[in-house]
């Protein structure tokens, strides 16, 4: 143990920074939710009585689930094609997945606004081609939010699923084919079941990221489609209702930790978050 003392000391700077500058502020949020405006669970009472909060939670869950579902579908097809591609082709596909991941989220939201707004390029194109007479409402509503969020989440869906698909022994697929199974049967009876852990991991990751997402929904929702993160910002910066904002923030963290806890039996969390880099 004494011999290890020096190694423990190496953890110290990060540990101190983390506790003083990260954990402490977050614990404070939890504390505010039960102490302001007065001590007690009054803020949490609003979860049952306040229609505004309930609507925000429902919107957040609905958009979160929708985003997760679509990102999983698109991501699965993409991961599947990448996993079965030749190594040289894999590199190009991966580039297409990883590039958007690192492009600033503001740049991406800006690009979507440019494309989707009333005088945007999509509406102009559709009108010029005579397909529509009046511009379609493509942004500053729930549709725009989902388009932008799925765009953000697909790479996060692809990476865990691809990691799990790469572990599938290709000889199993060849054997199934050799024994006379059709392509559909090989996929449905062999590949799909073996890739399911990756699908669950990807679903958990995308869902918890969606719940607390701020920038994209705020820009593409245009203030009309309120999700949890933007509602918290409104409470604290605009209405100065700290208790309510902190309450929903606490609920958000609790929901995320609960999701992780439920799925921690199926999903290796450290690997899930390590897969990103």
């Amino acid at each position: 143990m004494r011999r290890d003392l020096g190694w423990w000391a190496l953890l110290l700077p990060a540990f101190l920074m983390m506790t003083v500058l990260y954990i402490a502020p977050i614990v404070q949020v939890l504390a505010i939710s039960v102490t302001e405006p007065q001590l007690g669970l009054g803020n949490y009472d609003r979860l049952l009585t306040n229609a505004g909060v309930q609507r925000v939670i429902l919107t957040t869950l609905r958009i979160g689930l929708l985003t997760t579902g679509i990102a999983l579908l698109l991501g699965y097809a993409l991961a599947y094609v990448i996993a079965l591609a030749r190594p040289a082709a894999q590199r190009w596909w991966l580039l297409g997945v990883l590039l958007p991941l690192w492009i600033s989220v503001l740049v991406r939201a800006f690009a979507w606004v440019t494309l989707l707004r009333r005088q945007g390029l999509v509406n102009q194109g559709l009108q010029a081609s005579g397909l529509i007479d009046a511009p379609l409402p493509l942004v500053w509503n729930e549709f725009g939010v989902v388009v932008g969020m799925v765009h953000y989440m697909v790479p996060y869906a692809v990476l865990p699923m691809l990691a799990s698909m790469r572990e599938i022994d290709s000889r199993l697929l060849a054997a199934a084919r050799g024994l006379g199974a059709s392509r559909g049967t090989v996929f449905g009876r062999v590949f799909l079941p073996l890739s399911l852990p990756g699908v669950v991991a990807a679903g958990v990751l995308v869902f918890i990221f969606s719940l607390g997402f701020y920038i994209t929904p705020a820009i593409l929702g245009g203030g009309k489609t309120l999700m949890a993160a933007e509602w918290i910002k409104l409470q604290i910066l605009d209405l100065v209702r700290w208790g309510m904002g902190a309450m929903l923030a606490t609920v958000l963290v609790a929901a995320i930790l609960a999701t992780l806890a439920v799925f921690s039996r199926v999903v290796d969390l450290r690997r899930l978050f390590g897969a990103r880099a």
Binding site: A77, V81, R86, L99, V154, S170, L173, A174, R177
Partner: peptide
């Protein structure tokens, strides 16, 4: 990973559409 089993036309179609959706708007 091959061994007589590759991605079908349907999944390749979705994969291409998804990559274009990821990259083109930027």
């Amino acid at each position: 990973m091959t061994g007589g089993y590759g991605a079908g036309r349907f999944s390749r179609g979705i994969a291409w559409a998804t990559v274009l959706y990821l990259v083109l708007p930027i």
